[in-house]
Simulated assay, not measured.
Amino acid sequence: MLQEGQFRPVGGSRFHDVRVRLIASTNRDLAEELEKGTFRQDLYYRINVFRITAPPLRRRKEDSSDLAAHFLQKSAGKYGRPVPALSPSALETLLRFD
């Protein structure tokens, strides 16, 4: 009953008031899934209020080097290691993948 701003925990007997914003993500075409009957119509209309469509990485390869650098930096920070450089051949290999 999120549309009413309430929820009841599993096994609970009373409702709790809540202010919620739901963000959902999928790699499937939900309109197509709805037509096939594999996705609930009521849920589709509740979550399909504001849609952002991002093209897959294979269509924006120019982002690959920035993403690789981000994850290298994040992993290095997590393990307290220096940030490794991505060699030109490693980047070239990365860019060949769809």
Rank of each mutant, 00 (worst) to 15 (best):
residue 1 M to H: 14
residue 2 L to I: 12
residue 2 L to A: 15
residue 3 Q to G: 15
residue 4 E to N: 11
residue 4 E to L: 14
residue 5 G to K: 07
residue 6 Q to L: 13
residue 6 Q to D: 12
residue 7 F to E: 02
residue 7 F to M: 06
residue 8 R to Q: 09
residue 8 R to G: 05
residue 8 R to C: 06
residue 12 G to R: 04
residue 13 S to V: 12
residue 13 S to M: 11
residue 14 R to Q: 08
residue 16 H to F: 10
residue 16 H to N: 11
residue 17 D to P: 11
residue 17 D to V: 14
residue 18 V to N: 12
residue 18 V to Q: 10
residue 18 V to A: 13
residue 19 R to P: 15
residue 19 R to E: 15
residue 21 R to L: 13
residue 23 I to A: 12
residue 26 T to H: 04
residue 26 T to F: 00
residue 27 N to M: 03
residue 28 R to N: 03
residue 28 R to A: 08
residue 28 R to G: 03
residue 30 L to M: 06
residue 30 L to G: 02
residue 31 A to N: 13
residue 31 A to T: 11
residue 32 E to N: 13
residue 33 E to Y: 05
residue 34 L to N: 01
residue 35 E to M: 10
residue 35 E to T: 10
residue 37 G to E: 05
residue 38 T to F: 11
residue 38 T to R: 13
residue 38 T to I: 12
residue 39 F to A: 03
residue 39 F to V: 02
residue 39 F to T: 04
residue 40 R to P: 06
residue 40 R to D: 08
residue 40 R to M: 06
residue 41 Q to R: 13
residue 43 L to Q: 10
residue 43 L to W: 08
residue 44 Y to T: 04
residue 44 Y to S: 06
residue 46 R to E: 07
residue 46 R to M: 09
residue 47 I to T: 06
residue 48 N to Y: 09
residue 49 V to Y: 06
residue 49 V to P: 08
residue 50 F to N: 11
residue 51 R to H: 12
residue 52 I to T: 14
residue 52 I to V: 14
residue 53 T to M: 14
residue 54 A to F: 15
residue 54 A to M: 15
residue 54 A to Q: 15
residue 56 P to L: 03
residue 56 P to K: 00
residue 56 P to C: 01
residue 56 P to N: 04
residue 56 P to A: 03
residue 57 L to C: 00
residue 57 L to Q: 02
residue 57 L to H: 03
residue 59 R to L: 05
residue 59 R to T: 06
residue 60 R to A: 05
residue 60 R to W: 01
residue 61 K to N: 02
residue 62 E to S: 09
residue 62 E to V: 02
residue 65 S to V: 07
residue 65 S to H: 05
residue 66 D to W: 05
residue 66 D to M: 08
residue 69 A to Y: 04
residue 69 A to V: 00
residue 70 H to C: 06
residue 72 L to D: 01
residue 73 Q to S: 10
residue 74 K to I: 02
residue 75 S to C: 10
residue 75 S to I: 08
residue 76 A to I: 04
residue 77 G to W: 00
residue 78 K to Y: 07
residue 79 Y to D: 05
residue 79 Y to L: 08
residue 80 G to T: 02
residue 82 P to V: 02
residue 82 P to S: 02
residue 83 V to C: 06
residue 83 V to R: 07
residue 84 P to C: 12
residue 86 L to D: 02
residue 86 L to V: 04
residue 86 L to K: 00
residue 87 S to D: 08
residue 87 S to W: 03
residue 87 S to G: 11
residue 89 S to P: 01
residue 93 T to M: 12
residue 93 T to S: 12
residue 93 T to C: 13
residue 93 T to I: 10
residue 94 L to G: 02
residue 94 L to P: 00
residue 96 R to K: 13
residue 96 R to N: 10
residue 96 R to Q: 08
residue 97 F to D: 11
residue 98 D to Y: 08
residue 98 D to Q: 08
residue 98 D to S: 08
